[in-house]
Structure formats: C-alpha cells, structure tokens
C-alpha cells in the first residue's frame, strides 16, 4: 500500500561496533596458527564452544584452553541462497551445526562440498583459513 507516496530519506549512518574480544583473544590468535580452541571450566569441568571467559554454570573465572580435534557429524544443515547485505557478494553457502567428538556442537560454514552430498549424519572436520586479515574456521567433508 502506498508505493509512490511521499517519503523523507533519513540521515545515513554507518555503524561499526568495536567488539571487545578480551578474554577470547587467544581464540582468534590460535585460529591464525591453524587451531580451533574451546575453553574448559576449572570449577565444574564443562567444555565450552564458542569459548567463554566465565562459566555461567558455576560462576568460576578459571578457564583452560583446549584444542578441538574438530571431527564431527552434521546434525542440521541448510544452503543459503538469499544472502544478507554484508554477505551478498559471497556465492550461496552451506551452513551446518555439527556435533564434535568432544561433545560440543559447532555452527559453521561447510565448504568444498557437492550440495547433493550434504546430509544429516555426514562426517565433517573443522579447519582454519585466512580470509583477508581475519582467520576463520569452517567444516570440510572428511
């Protein structure tokens, strides 16, 4: 309704949030070294991925960094065709949630895969990659 009716353009505004990663910075450093890390609570033993600096279960701030082996099995997947603004220049991509041997689940892109092969239960492995000035992690088929 009302296409063609008068409107005002708002003042344009570009927002870039400076997101503090203090407490997880080791995660991003290790990605550059090819390692995907989780944190394990010294208080209650819970393993966290994504990593945390404080435990919401026992409220301990003592965390140990542990490297994930990265092998896992797809629990859910989708092929994203209609992309959001900041990903619109990327070709369509496949996103999965996979459960790792260590017990944690990881949400990430699944790369180097034939779409017809992707299914729940498929074996995948995490690997790291440098894209621009950011190190990222993604799954590839085993």
């Amino acid at each position: 309704m009302g296409i063609g009716l008068p409107f005002l353009n708002s003042k344009p505004l570009t927002l870039t949030f400076k997101i503090p990663i203090n407490g997880f910075s080791r995660f991003f450093e290790e990605l550059k070294n090819g390692r995907v890390m989780a944190t394990k609570c010294r208080g209650c033993g819970k393993l966290y991925f994504p990593p945390v600096a404080e435990c919401g279960e026992c409220f301990s701030s003592g965390m140990d960094w542990v490297e994930l082996d990265g092998e896992g099995e797809v629990e859910a997947f989708t092929h994203v065709v209609v992309r959001p603004e900041s990903f619109k220049r990327n070709p369509p991509y496949t996103l999965v949630v996979a459960r790792l041997k260590e017990g944690v689940k990881v949400f990430a892109k699944l790369s180097n895969v034939d779409l017809a092969e992707v299914r729940v239960g498929m074996k995948v492995k995490l690997k790291t990659k440098i894209v621009g000035d950011e190190a990222i992690y993604e799954f590839t088929p085993v």
Binding site: F77, F87, Y93, V120, I136
Partner: peptide, 26 residues
C-alpha cells in the same frame, strides 16, 4: 548471537529455521 554466529557465517532467519527443517525431515 552476532559475535559467534552472524559475524563469521551470515545466517539469515530462514537459514536458522531451515536447519531445524533439515533435522526434522531426517
């Protein structure tokens, strides 16, 4: 969770529900 999910991977709202659909179908 912008920091851990959107920033790196660009999920959309349909994509999140599509994950559930794939698991429900299976």
């Amino acid at each position: 969770y912008y920091l851990w999910e959107f920033h790196g991977f660009g999920p959309t709202f349909p994509a999140y529900y599509a994950l559930y659909a794939s698991a429900h179908m299976e």
